[in-house]
Amino acid sequence: MRIHCPCCGARPVDEFTYLGDATPQRPAADAGLSAWHDYVYQRDNPRGPHHEYWQHAGGCRAWLVVHRDTATHEILEVTAAREWRARQA
């Protein structure tokens, strides 16, 4: 698996560290137990395209959102995390 870092180009996957699903939105501090439980513990865990946080820890250290198919490992799109969050808002 190779990830195309927007700063560094296509790099092998072992230069990157994985955080996980990028879609859960951090609730407000006073949102209540149920909202926080869902944010911390519950996952959609799809078989197919998945937005996920990766960091190019062995390279430019940028945080990325990788759109990757969990059934085939095909990488559909890589965006800087900040840009992706802005696009969601």
């Binding site: 698996m1 092998p12 996957v13 072992d14 994985y18 996980g20 699903d21 865990n45 078989r47 998945h50 996920e52 990757r68 969990t70 059934a71 085939t72 490992h73």
Partner: peptide
Amino acid sequence: DGYNSYAQRGNLP
């Protein structure tokens, strides 16, 4: 391997 996957096959690292 450390990332979500249903692929039933891994990577070389």
